[in-house]
Amino acid sequence: MQLQQEVSAWRPRVAGVVEVFHARFTAHAYPMHVHDEWTLLIVDDGAVRYDLDRHRRGTPGGTVSLLPPQVPHNGSAATSHGFRKRVVYFDTTVLDEGFIGAAVDGPDLADSLLRRRVGQLHRALVSPGDEFEAESRLALIGERLRLLLQPRLELPGGHTASLGARTRHGIAGDLRELLDERVVAGISLLEAAGQIQAHPAHLVRSFSTAFGIAPHQYLISRRVALARRLLLDGRPAAEVAVESGFHDQPHFTRHFKRVVGTTPGRYACSAAVRLPDG
């Protein structure tokens, strides 16, 4: 089978939107990773399967998948045919963190109106000059998401229980705070264990159990997220490698490709063609 890869990424001038990412993959498999933002995903061709909060999920036809910030997930093609997807990453001004638990409980939303509105949003996002339309459509999407997720907040054992379980992390939460503070500079496991006063092996096991992702995977995904923002700002890949905490260019390229599905250079080029003149 011939491998196919098409990637286009950019940051539009639309309030609340952090990144737009369109891709076609036949064989790429995303490792466990996290995003700082909400991930709103539609699959136009094929299907994606993924794990979210230790549950196997998928994208049946016509659904919209909403993946919450800071919740680890992976992803791969459900068939050898691969998939074509369109993604909008938006911040908590569009949908606040109070809906994270509800989204974890049911990320795949089978709602025809929401699906139609997301498609309309993407059509506006690819057209320079249509930023006001995109902002309007994003506002309606946020409203629809809140309407769809709200009933789950009121169900016994739903949002409150799920979110509450994720907020009591003890030493795992302490390690995550350290990693968030030292995304670029990094920290050794022994130093972290000393600061938290826990055995290194126990610290690693506790983090992996609490968050469903190993500490090193979490740190790499945070560095890749920072690198994406810098590349979309137009920064050279060589500078981004250092400024996002990677050892060198090969180290940066290897991990970026594993998480994003393409090299930093190709990712940056896809963004550059959409930069406004002047």
Rank of each mutant, 00 (worst) to 15 (best):
D53Y: 15
D53T: 11
D53L: 08
H55W: 06
R57A: 13
G58C: 12
G58R: 15
T59F: 06
T59V: 09
T59L: 06
P60D: 15
G61V: 06
G61I: 00
G61T: 08
G62E: 12
G62D: 10
T63S: 15
V64W: 08
S65T: 15
S65W: 11
L66I: 11
P68C: 07
P69T: 05
P69I: 05
P69W: 02
G75W: 02
A78C: 11
T79G: 14
T79P: 10
H81D: 15
H81Y: 12
G82W: 04
F83R: 14
R84L: 08
R86F: 02
Y89S: 07
F90N: 05
F90G: 02
T92M: 01
T92C: 04
V94M: 01
V94W: 00
V94R: 01
V94P: 00
G98Q: 03
F99R: 04
F99A: 02
I100M: 00
G101F: 01
A102I: 09
A102R: 07
A102Q: 08
A103S: 10
A103R: 02
V104G: 07
V104Y: 05
P107L: 10
A110R: 09
A110I: 05
D111A: 00
D111M: 01
S112A: 13
L114I: 07
L114Y: 02
R115N: 14
V118A: 07
G119C: 09
L121H: 01
R123T: 11
R123G: 05
V126C: 02
P128T: 11
G129C: 03
E131C: 03
E133N: 08
E133Q: 09
E135S: 12
R137C: 04
R137M: 04
L138F: 03
A139K: 12
L140P: 06
E143K: 07
L145S: 01
R146L: 00
R146I: 01
L148R: 08
L149G: 08
Q150S: 13
P151L: 04
R152T: 13
R152P: 06
R152C: 04
R152V: 09
E154R: 13
E154K: 08
E154W: 06
E154A: 12
L155E: 15
P156C: 02
P156Q: 07
P156V: 10
G157N: 13
G157K: 09
G157P: 15
G158P: 03
G158T: 06
G158Q: 07
H159S: 14
A161Q: 11
A161W: 09
S162E: 09
G164N: 14
G164M: 11
G164S: 14
G164Y: 11
A165N: 08
R166T: 05
R166I: 00
T167H: 04
R168K: 13
G170K: 14
I171M: 12
I171Q: 13
I171G: 07
A172N: 10
L175N: 13
R176A: 12
R176E: 13
L179C: 03
L179M: 09
D180T: 03
D180I: 02
D180F: 00
R182V: 03
V184T: 12
V184E: 10
V184Y: 05
A185W: 02
A185H: 01
G186A: 10
G186N: 12
